[in-house]
Design a protein around this nucleic acid. Structure first.
Lengths: 144, 144
DNA sequence: ACAGTCGCAACATTAATTGTTACGACAGAC
DNA sequence: GTCTGTCGTAACAATTAATGTTGCGACTGT
């Protein structure tokens, strides 16, 4: 479905910064993270900018600039990241409004919206159960 | 996120056929459904074709041709529809493979895949709890 | 033979994400 | 005060997926 890797890349960036800081460094640059994620630094800066707005990371400017965590990885969940970087709802409605003169065309959108709402709530609960600390631990547990 | 309305349109089509059949008609045409959903008949035929492959609907050709349900709405769930019309996973990995020389770049994909798998399983369970009969009832319950 | 609809392929359009380039703003080093 | 490295952001290009459209052959009841 979604060719949408924003959540994955954002988690990647956070894990990278977290690990780098544990190795004694103050800040990580968008270029370093971009190299690890094999993408463009601007893409990383955009995503981290959204995470900063959500209070998950901080940035410093000038020489020796870069990004650092605003909170412990333990206190961040995938839900925090998801809400920071994913704008819309999971499932979309019709692109053009259906025929309001038809019973089904008229009732389908409220019906599906109500159903989708419950499903997204469940998804949110699941995302909230996974911390970024957990993600980093899983990353380090990968066989090499 | 996804500007992806396939599940919504497919549910719309099934509810439409179901209601139409309850009104005494044998088959529904892609043109009728397309009018209700405010889209092109070919879009409907494509979606219904996938639902037919999944055994949810049947089609007849020739004069008086059209679509009919292969099972009761009561016995179809949104999960059946979802699996029929949504190909890929919910969350995507990196577009380009991350730097395998980096610890995080190396471990991130297996880590996230494992996490996403559990989340998608939960999503599937939620979708499986909603029958198309329920959808149609919600549709008809909408205030006019 | 005819008419209506599906089946399917080919192509166009739209929209979202991702990638790239460019340049000003900022802050520490010298 | 200048220099250097990095962020901040805008503008635009490239890529991809979904959706929309057209065309025409296949099928089947009349």
């Amino acid at each position: 479905m979604s060719a949408n890797s924003r959540l994955t890349i954002a988690a990647h960036a956070l894990a990278w910064i977290g690990l780098y800081q544990r190795q004694g460094h103050e800040v990580a640059t968008s270029e370093q993270i971009a190299t690890s994620a094999n993408t463009n630094p601007v893409v990383i800066r955009r995503l981290l900018g959204e995470l900063r707005r959500a209070g998950l990371v901080e940035s410093r400017r000038g020489v020796g600039a870069g990004w650092s965590l605003a909170r412990e990885l333990e206190s961040m969940t995938l839900l925090d990241v998801y809400e920071a970087v994913e704008p819309g709802p999971l499932f979309a409605m019709h692109r053009a409004t259906p025929d309001q003169g038809c019973v089904v065309g008229h009732g389908i959108q409220p019906a599906m919206q109500g159903i989708y709402e419950g499903i997204e709530e469940t998804l949110r609960n699941e995302l909230a159960r996974v911390t970024l600390e957990h993600v980093l631990r899983e990353v380090l547990a990968a066989p090499r």
